[in-house]
């Protein structure tokens, strides 16, 4: 797939350094970062507009809805590969996230290696 058309990735992360770092590493790894948003609401809108192949979704976000709720809304209209990345380890958060059948649920700090491992499983 990398040889044909780069996989498009949208980053939903309200921490600038994290988002920037991920974007750089993903680009370096050959992915096309089509968008970065910091709120759940923006993520829903951007997902509809950009139709990314992959969404890296933080759970605790700025805005009124969290990453899980944003992902739920996105999945109502599209079927991107969903990878949650969060600092929350509690079972409640994980269970709620896993109910959406994501490709992965990563605990921060997340490395590009973690992400690539998940993406390699499907791409």
């Amino acid at each position: 797939m990398h040889n044909q058309e780069p996989t498009t990735v949208m980053i939903v992360e309200d921490e600038v350094f994290i988002a920037m770092s991920l974007e750089i590493q993903l680009k370096t790894a050959g992915y096309h970062v089509c968008g970065r948003t910091a709120t759940g609401e923006d993520a829903v809108r951007a997902a509809e507009e950009l139709s990314p192949d992959v969404i890296l979704m933080d759970i605790r976000l700025a805005g009124q809805i969290d990453g899980i709720e944003a992902a739920r809304k996105i999945l109502e209209r599209a079927q991107p590969v969903l990878i949650f990345m969060t600092g929350y380890q509690g079972p409640e958060v994980k269970n709620a996230a896993m109910a959406l059948n994501p490709r992965g649920f990563l605990i921060k700090p997340v490395t590009i290696g973690d992400i690539e491992s998940l993406l390699m499983e499907s791409m």
């Binding site: 994290i18 920037m20 770092s21 750089i24 605790r60 600092g87 929350y88 700090p109």
Partner: peptide, 16 residues
């Protein structure tokens, strides 16, 4: 959550 997030920010800053 803060510790994990902060660790991620630190690694991101170092990387950048």
């Amino acid at each position: 959550h803060r510790i994990n997030n902060t660790m991620q920010i630190l690694t991101s800053m170092v990387h950048i």
